[in-house]
Amino acid sequence: MSGVKEQTRRTDAPRTVILFHTSSHAFRAEKLLKEADIACSLVPVPRHLSSDCGVCLRLPARDAGRARAILDARGVEIAGIHELG
């Protein structure tokens, strides 16, 4: 099944999650960031964060700035960006 592959491998590198108002934006963001070769994955929103929709995009913290620029440029509204501990 294409696209279901989850990135479950844990690394020590710091990670960031991007939250969205609607899952439509989360799916659009996933596609745009993957096209830009940013290793991101859609995951359930961590319990300690509140979000408008149930999924968020997790990516390496070092790519967060580039990700935000891409999403801003394409008009994908971001509800929040959080560094994971």
Binding site: M1, F27, V45, G54
Partner: peptide, 27 residues
Amino acid sequence: DHVGANPGRSGHRLSIEAGRIVHAARE
């Protein structure tokens, strides 16, 4: 047969895949 789940509701892989399929139709 292979996805079935509710798009945009839960965070599990099949729900996410359902959401991707709906989003692809929207795009």
